[in-house]
Deep mutational scan, measured.
Amino acid sequence: TKKDTKLYCICKTPYDESKFYIGCDRCQNWYHGRCVGILQSEAELIDEYVCPQCQST
Rank of each mutant, 00 (worst) to 15 (best):
Q40G: 11
D16Y: 02
C9Q: 01
C51W: 00
K12N: 06
P14N: 07
G37D: 04
C54V: 00
T13G: 03
S18Y: 05
I38S: 03
I10W: 04
T13L: 05
S56M: 03
D47L: 11
V50E: 15
N29H: 11
C24R: 03
W30G: 10
D25Y: 10
C54G: 02
Q55F: 04
C54T: 00
D4Y: 08
T13D: 03
A43P: 08
C35Y: 01
S41E: 14
Q40S: 12
K12Q: 14
K3T: 14
H32M: 00
Q53L: 12
Y15M: 13
G23I: 03
V36W: 00
L7D: 14
K3H: 04
K19I: 10
N29W: 05
E48I: 11
V36E: 03
P52L: 09
A43W: 07
T57S: 15
I38T: 09
V50K: 10
Q55D: 15
S18V: 02
C11P: 02
E44A: 13
Y8H: 13
D25H: 11
D25R: 14
I10M: 06
E48G: 10
I10F: 05
C9A: 01
K6M: 13
G23W: 08
K12G: 07
T1E: 07
C51I: 00
Y8C: 12
Q28A: 09
S18Q: 03
T5H: 12
C54Y: 00
Y15L: 09
Y15K: 09
L7Y: 13
R34H: 14
Q53T: 15
Q53N: 15
Q28M: 10
H32V: 02
P52Y: 05
S18E: 15
A43Y: 11
I46D: 05
C11F: 00
C51R: 02
D25L: 13
C11V: 00
Q40I: 04
Q40D: 09
R34K: 15
S18D: 12
S56R: 15
Y49G: 03
R34A: 14
C24I: 01
K6L: 11
D47P: 10
D25E: 15
C27N: 02
K6S: 12
G33Q: 13
Q55I: 09
K19S: 07
F20R: 09
V50R: 09
S18L: 03
P52C: 07
Y8A: 15
K12T: 10
Q40K: 07
P52S: 15
Y8M: 14
N29L: 07
R34Q: 14
C11G: 02
S18I: 00
E44Q: 10
C27Y: 01
C24A: 00
C35M: 01
P52M: 09
P52W: 05
T57M: 03
P14M: 10
G33R: 12
C35N: 00
C11R: 01
D16N: 08
C27A: 00
E44P: 10
C11W: 00
R26T: 15
C51T: 00
G23H: 14
D16V: 05
T57F: 04
E17G: 15
D4W: 04
T13Y: 03
Y8K: 15
Y21T: 05
D25K: 15
Q55V: 08
F20G: 06
Y21N: 09
K19R: 14
Q55T: 07
T5I: 13
V36M: 04
K19G: 06
C51M: 02
R26H: 15
F20Q: 10
Q40Y: 05
V36A: 03
K6Q: 12
D25A: 13
H32P: 00
I22V: 12
Y31G: 01
L7H: 14
Y8W: 08
P52D: 15
S41M: 09
G37M: 05
Y15F: 13
D47G: 15
P14F: 09
C27D: 00
L7V: 11
C24Y: 01
G37H: 08
V36Q: 01
R26P: 07
D47E: 15
Y49P: 03
R26F: 06
K19A: 11
R34C: 04
Q28L: 09
C54R: 01
C11Q: 00
C51H: 01
L45A: 10
G37F: 04
C11L: 01
P14I: 07
K3M: 08
Q53H: 13
Q28C: 15
R26Y: 10
I38D: 04
Y31E: 02
E42H: 05
C11T: 01
D4I: 08
I38L: 13
R26W: 06
Y49D: 02
R34I: 08
K12I: 01
I22N: 01
D4N: 10
L45G: 12
C54E: 02
P14Q: 06
Y8I: 08
A43H: 14
R34T: 11
Q53K: 09
I22P: 01
N29K: 09
G37N: 08
T57E: 13
K6A: 15
C51V: 02
C24N: 00
R26I: 14
P14E: 08
A43N: 06
D25P: 07
F20P: 13
S56W: 03
T5D: 14
C35S: 02
S56I: 07
D47C: 12
Q53I: 15
K3N: 04
K6V: 08
D4F: 06
C27Q: 00
Y8G: 14
E42R: 04
D47S: 12
Y31I: 04
T13M: 08
H32E: 00
C9F: 01
T1I: 09
I38M: 11
Q40P: 07
A43V: 12
T13H: 03
C11E: 03
V36P: 00
T5N: 14
S56L: 05
L39W: 05
D16G: 03
E17Q: 11
Q55M: 07
E48N: 15
I38H: 05
E44V: 09
L39I: 14
Y31C: 07
S41G: 10
T13N: 05
D47Y: 08
V36F: 01
E17T: 07
Y31P: 02
C27R: 01
K3I: 12
P52A: 11
A43R: 11
V50T: 14
G37P: 00
Y15R: 08
N29Q: 15
E48V: 13
C11Y: 00
Q28Y: 10
W30E: 07
G37I: 01
I10V: 07
G33S: 07
I22G: 02
E48W: 05
Y8D: 15
Y21F: 08
C9R: 01
D47R: 12
I38V: 10
G33W: 04
H32F: 01
T13W: 03
E48Q: 08
L7N: 14
K3S: 14
P52H: 11
K12W: 03
L7R: 08
W30C: 09
Y31R: 02
F20S: 10
Y15E: 04
C9I: 00
K19C: 06
S41D: 11
Q28K: 15
L45M: 07
F20A: 08
E42N: 06
L45V: 13
L45I: 09
P52R: 12
K12F: 06
K6P: 14
V50N: 07
L39D: 11
D4L: 06
I10R: 05
G33C: 15
A43F: 08
I38C: 03
Q28H: 14
C24M: 00
E42W: 03
Y49K: 03
I22E: 00
T1L: 06
Y31T: 02
Y31W: 03
R26V: 08
L45C: 10
C51A: 02
H32A: 01
P14Y: 09
L7K: 07
D47W: 05
C35W: 00
Q53S: 10
Q40W: 04
Y15P: 05
S41R: 14
W30L: 15
N29G: 11
D16P: 03
S56P: 14
E48P: 15
G37T: 03
Q53C: 08
F20M: 09
E17R: 05
K12R: 11
E44F: 10
Q28P: 07
I22F: 03
E44D: 14
T57V: 12
C35D: 00
